[in-house]
Structures are given as C-alpha cells and as structure tokens.
C-alpha cells in the first residue's frame, strides 16, 4: 500500500478529486442501464433539480477551506421558504423577497461566523444549533403544517430556458465561476487558502485569521440564501421539511470534490462535479430501484470513503 502511494504517478492521480472518477463511473452505469436517458433534455431536468444543492456546495467549500463547516443551510432554506410562502408580506414583490432572503442569510451567516471565529465555538455545534432553532421556529409559526403558496413568478423564472439550457443551471455555472474567481484572483481567496493550510502560520504572517473565518461564514450564509430562493422556485409551494438534508449532501459533495478541511486541491470545479455526481447518483438509484434508506447509506459511505481517501493520503508524507 505504502509503496503504491509513494509512486509519483499514483500520487499525481491521487491529487485528482474523486468526484471526476465517480462522475464517469456513474455516467457509464447509466449508459449501460438506460442509454436512452442520456440526452440533453432529460439530463437538463435532472441537473436542474440539484441546482440548490450545487449552490449550497459553493458556500460549503469556502468554509471547509478555512477548516470549518456549515450545517445551518437547512434552517436558512426553511426560514426563507416560510417568508415567501406564508403570506406574512402581502403584495410584496420579487425584489423585496430577494433582498429579505439575502439579508436573513447575511445575518445568520454573520452570527455563525462570529460564534465560530470570535467565540471559537465548535462549528458543527453552532451551525446545527442555529439550524434546529430556525426549524423549530418555522414549525411553530406554521404549527407544523405547510404554509401557503409561493408567488407564481418564482416558478415561472425557474422554468425558463436560455438556448435550451435551463436558466437555473446556467445561473449555477455563473455563480460557480464567480466563486472560482473570488478564491483564485482576490486577496480574500489567498487569505482563505493560507488560513486553511496553517492558521497559526497565517496569523504570524499578518493574515487576519479571525476576520477571514467570519467573512467565509457570512459568504456561506449569503450563498445558502440564494440556494433557498432557487429551492423555493423549484418546489413552488411552502413546506416545513424542504432542504433539511441538503447541508449534509453539500458536505458530501464538497469532500467528494477534493476539498477537505483546510485543503483545496479540488478547487471549485471538483465540488461542482461532486454535486453533479449526486444528480446522477439519484437517477441511477431510482433506475436500480433503491429507495430513501439506500440513499442515506450511500451518503454516509461516500462521506466516509472520501474522508478515508484523504486521511490515508495525509498520512503518507
């Protein structure tokens, strides 16, 4: 094992995020099982479904690169879905909801960042607790029942196409490119990379570690709010359970994409393909007749497998 890992070619291969391999394997499986499903229209629909996950992954990868984690996305999505569908803001327009959503995401992200960066509380505990509080509040406000309907404009926007590519998918690609530019071309991106590599060394080199962590979490909150808007557009109704499993899927897709705590080998496109893997995985599992429990097991196995893959690699010098 150790000899294989020491081989330069093997080590070069290990630097490629697992998501690319998994994506190819899933594509091949689908091609063998249902070749007629591999056309642009059907794939567009499947990929469109995981756009909220794909967007959430963008926030997750930023916080995971500063050795943190954000599991509050489920609560944020539920809260924003409630704002839009409950009718608490009668006659409100689309821009109002967008601003409201972004503001809530910003505030929650800032709170997460403050607790994690300044108070140094465990990120898992903070973000899970925030999620539980938000879910509890939303369920209390709606007394456990789904709230009302979502303004029609949301779903209409979601269903549009641009040059036969669904707009949400295009939006996702643009947003991914924006985060890619942010991380690779700006000072903030350099700060994120250095804090993830070694927070102590970054601190002594004059990097504002605490501010970087807080900013990363604020960004993640903001991105979660965008994911919430897309998710609300996709289901087009109010719900008290929508998006609750998304944060953990986002963690899985990010790890699969080669971004593990503090290490960003996979860049932004590795996790992008990680999210695409889940789109294909759900299709393959539905085709093979595996239902919800099987999906839970697959999520767990993927996270553990990818984490072990990286753990073994870190060991070998």
């Amino acid at each position: 094992m150790a000899a294989v890992l020491a081989n330069p070619i093997a080590r070069r291969l290990l630097r490629i995020p697992p998501s690319y391999f998994v994506f190819l394997v899933l594509l091949a499986t689908l091609w063998i099982a249902r070749p007629n499903m591999l056309n642009l229209n059907i794939m567009g629909i499947f990929i469109r479904q995981i756009v909220p996950l794909g967007i959430l992954v963008l926030g997750q990868l930023v916080v995971m690169r500063v050795k943190s984690i954000d599991l509050s996305g489920g609560g944020i999505i539920l809260l924003i879905n409630y704002f839009i569908s409950s009718g608490s803001f009668p006659g409100a327009s689309l821009p109002f909801f967008v601003v409201l959503a972004l503001a809530s995401g910003l505030v929650i992200g800032l709170f997460n960042g403050f607790m994690i960066g300044n108070r140094r509380v465990s990120a898992v505990i903070v973000t899970l607790a925030v999620s539980i509080i938000l879910v509890g509040l939303v369920q209390f406000l709606s007394s456990g029942n789904p709230p009302g309907d979502v303004p029609k404009l949301f779903n209409d926007l979601y269903n549009t196409k641009f040059l036969s590519v669904p707009t949400p998918v295009l939006f996702w690609i643009l947003l991914t490119a924006a985060v890619w530019l942010l991380l690779s071309r700006t000072v903030f991106g350099r700060y994120v990379a250095s804090v993830g590599e070694n927070a102590e060394a970054a601190h002594f080199s004059g990097v504002p570690v605490q501010r970087t962590v807080i900013l990363a979490h604020t960004l993640a909150g903001l991105i979660a709010a965008i994911a919430a808007l897309v998710q609300t557009g996709s289901i087009a109704v109010g719900s008290v359970r929508v998006g609750l499993d998304l944060p953990i899927l986002a963690v899985a897709a990010t790890i699969l994409g080669g971004v593990v705590f503090g290490r960003g080998d996979g860049g932004v496109w590795g996790p992008f393909f990680g999210a695409l893997c889940f789109a294909l995985l759900f299709v393959v599992m539905t085709v093979l007749g595996i239902d919800e429990p099987g999906k839970l097991i697959a999520q767990g196995v993927i996270i553990l497998g990818a984490a072990i893959f990286y753990g073994v690699r870190v060991r070998t010098p």
Binding site: P293, G294, I297, I303, L304
Partner: peptide, 14 residues
Amino acid sequence: IIATLSTQYIVLGV
C-alpha cells in the same frame, strides 16, 4: 465529527 456523521447516516439507512 466526519466519521461519526457518516456512520450516523449509514446506521439510519439500515
């Protein structure tokens, strides 16, 4: 946290 989070999902699925 990652190890036990994944076993949480695997065990829940089973």
